Simulated scan of single mutants.
Amino acid sequence: HQYYIDQHLLSCTNDFRDLGVIVDSKFNFNAHINNITHKASSRARLIVKCFTSKNKDLLVKAFCSYVRPLIEYCSPLWNPHYKYQITKIENVQRR
């Protein structure tokens, strides 16, 4: 279908974001999982880089405060079914 607003054609997309979760036209969450693992890995690297203290308890608390919410947000909705998706998410936590 083609949709118009004031005679301007709206572009079609295969992916859309709703409440922060990226979904494609086949109700697949691969783009969302790629996005959150990239963001979570970046934040985890920044935590290690920016904290001068290498106290394990402090780093774990920072990880739980700043990284885990990214990974766990709306997880019942996009629950990963495939092994490669689960592995990708767990790799962030292992690092």
Rank of each mutant, 00 (worst) to 15 (best):
T87I: 12
G20A: 04
D57Q: 05
H38Y: 14
F29R: 00
V67F: 03
V23K: 00
L77Y: 10
N91P: 08
H81K: 11
R95T: 13
I89W: 07
Y73S: 03
Y66T: 10
K61S: 15
D6H: 09
R45A: 11
N28C: 14
N79T: 14
K61T: 14
N30A: 09
Y66K: 03
R68H: 08
L59T: 05
C12E: 15
I71L: 13
R68N: 04
N91V: 12
T52Q: 11
K54S: 09
R17S: 15
A31V: 12
I5S: 05
L59F: 01
P80M: 07
F27P: 04
V21A: 08
D15I: 13
H38D: 13
I5T: 11
V92N: 03
Y3Q: 12
K61V: 14
K49T: 14
Q93A: 10
L59R: 00
H32Y: 00
H38N: 13
S42Y: 07
P80K: 04
I33S: 04
H8E: 14
S53L: 00
L70Y: 05
W78I: 09
N35W: 06
S11G: 10
V60P: 03
N14C: 15
C50E: 11
T13R: 02
H38L: 12
T37S: 05
D24E: 00
K26L: 12
E72K: 03
K88M: 07
V21R: 01
I5R: 02
L46D: 06
S25Q: 08
K61G: 09
D6Y: 06
L9N: 06
S53V: 06
G20L: 02
E90G: 02
D6T: 07
P80G: 07
R17K: 08
S25H: 09
H81W: 12
K49G: 05
R95I: 14
